[in-house]
């Protein structure tokens, strides 16, 4: 197997506050291969977006990367000096944010923002950069790009603006795109278009994509593998089909079970009891134990480490050898 485009090893992110150090990301590891789409799901505050920001080094004080490694195509980038890290951002890693209405600077023409980004990362002349900008807009599906390029962001619709944002992320043909909730702010019909576009771009250019979302539907349609995050850790990671159809972690089970089905009629929507703990009050042991229907004594004291089970990797004591043996004996 070839070297992964992105490899995150035991990453820790902390926020120093007046009330102490909050662990937003508590030791996560994952890989994304060339051309692969990794979906990252979880509730709000699970650490999905922070993971994306940490990979590109955009964690602002009081936050900081407290440990671990971020490796981009074999090169460690989390410890680069700021100026070198800046050259990686936008050139080798493109980012797409949630709200296209606020991601673009309202005072500059789309052409100015595209040309500026292209010329920051390449040696193209301004006319060559402009030509490339028009090609990019055409590629992301903006009609009549040679005319539209000189419009201001407010002259585009939300979906069109997100296409512009994607074009901006593609400026320097990055190896990896981090899409942080790229469809959340869009209409459902536009969401599908943007997802199709992202998939096509990933396939055409062999770009690895890290897709952060809380929308399981988007993940199921788009991702090759999925990581389910809970309270700053990866609860379960595996091929999307397996995780959706046969989740192992009780939290992943709850999450998949909460997707309403069209085949079975239900009066009440299924939900996981309780809510995710605040960062300042993460329970000892497994962070999910107060909400977990299967929790036993060990879950309340010892933090589960990830265990490989077939194609999944799951952080749950239920799948530990000793537990399984104990169950078999009982």
């Amino acid at each position: 197997m070839s070297q992964p485009v992105l490899s995150v090893r035991d990453l820790h992110v902390e926020f120093v506050t007046r009330r102490g150090v909050l662990k937003a990301i508590d030791g996560i590891s994952f890989d994304i291969a060339k051309g692969e789409v990794l979906g990252v799901v979880g509730e709000s505050g699970a650490g999905k977006s922070v993971t994306g920001s940490a990979v590109v080094g955009l964690i602002d004080p009081p936050g900081r990367i407290a440990g671990g490694e971020v490796i981009l195509s074999g090169m460690r980038i989390d410890n680069l000096p700021p100026e070198e890290l800046r050259r990686v951002r936008g050139k080798r890693i493109g980012m797409i944010f949630q709200d296209p209405l606020t991601s673009l600077n309202p005072l500059y023409r789309v052409s100015e923002q595209l040309v500026e980004t292209i010329r920051t990362h390449t040696n193209l002349s301004s006319s060559a950069a402009r030509k490339r900008a028009i090609d990019l807009l055409a590629e992301v599906g903006i009609p009549a790009p040679d005319r539209r390029i000189d419009s201001y962001p407010h002259e585009f619709s939300g979906g069109m603006r997100q296409r512009v944002v994607i074009a901006l992320a593609l400026c320097a043909e990055p190896e990896l795109i981090i899409a942080d909730e790229p469809t959340t702010a869009l209409d459902v019909s536009v969401q599908a278009q943007i997802i199709t576009l992202l998939k096509r771009l990933g396939r055409d250019h062999g770009t690895a994509i890290m897709l952060v979302t809380h929308d399981m539907g988007v993940i199921a349609e788009t991702a090759d593998r999925v990581a389910v995050m809970y309270a700053g850790r990866i609860a379960e990671i595996g091929p999307v089909r397996d995780v959706v159809q046969n989740p192992l972690h009780p939290y992943a089970k709850g999450l998949m079970g909460a997707i309403p089905s069209l085949e079975v009629e239900t009066d009440r929507l299924v939900q996981i009891p309780g809510s995710m703990p605040r960062l300042s009050a993460i329970p000892t042991g497994c962070a999910f134990n107060p909400r977990c229907p299967f929790a036993f004594d060990r879950c309340r004291v010892e933090r589960p480490e990830p265990i490989q089970r077939d194609l999944h990797r799951v952080a749950c004591h239920l799948y530990d050898e000793t537990t399984i043996r104990a169950e078999a004996l009982a």
Partner: peptide, 17 residues
């Protein structure tokens, strides 16, 4: 603090720009 500044940083623009 705005998103477009965060996005500008994510695009790797220079601090000066």
């Amino acid at each position: 603090r705005t998103d477009y500044i965060k996005f500008a940083r994510a695009r790797g623009l220079t601090t000066r720009a």
